[in-house]
């Protein structure tokens, strides 16, 4: 079976640009934005969103990376996973508006882990969620605030996000 491309590079750029605008608009007041990507591709997307927000409204955002490996609910059930580095911007997350950034929202378990991880770094004023793709099939009461594209899928299908920084190409594919 062949993979079908559901988002091309121009679609991804357009989606991120729209999300960046929405994040700035939703800020309300003078809240400091901290974009935290979930490794690996979420971190890439967080940096891209940060760059876009810097264009529209310089100085209101910072970005970093939040690894959730040690907070996963399946840690003890699977083979040992290697964590990725966590990088929190110097001013911390206290009183900021944290925007978690990930490539695909699926069961919601990764985001559950991320919410636990955030708390160990401080107390943000609010936590929001931005994802490039929402493919449905949630297993927890979690939803995204900013979505690049909703892609209805079957659980048997495979949704793959590839980004230039990590994979050499910008595309989202779905394969049976």
């Amino acid at each position: 079976m062949v993979a079908r491309t559901v988002l091309h590079d121009a679609d991804i750029t357009r989606a991120l640009r729209r999300i960046a605008h929405e994040i700035v608009e939703s800020r309300r007041g003078d809240g400091r934005l901290v974009l935290l990507g979930i490794p690996t591709r979420g971190t890439v997307l967080a940096e891209r969103l940060y760059t876009l927000i810097e264009e529209f409204d310089p100085g209101i955002a910072e970005w970093g990376s939040l690894d959730v490996t040690m907070y996963r609910d399946d840690l003890a059930r699977s083979a040992t996973r290697m964590p990725a580095p966590t990088v929190i911007p110097g001013s911390g997350v206290d009183e900021s508006i944290v925007v978690l950034v990930d490539d695909v929202l699926y069961s919601g378990r990764t985001i559950r882990a991320a919410l636990d991880a955030i708390v160990d770094h401080g107390r943000p004023r609010a936590v929001r969620l931005a994802v490039l793709v929402d493919r449905g099939h949630r297993e927890l009461p979690i939803r995204a605030d900013f979505v690049g594209k909703n892609i209805p899928s079957a659980t048997s299908e495979r949704v793959s996000v590839r980004l230039i920084e990590t994979d050499g190409v910008d595309e989202v594919t779905i394969e049976p």
């Binding site: 040690m70 003890a76 699977s78 083979a79 040992t80 996973r81 290697m82």
Partner: peptide
Amino acid sequence: AGSSGEPA
């Protein structure tokens, strides 16, 4: 931490 001790 993991179930088998082998790296993923």
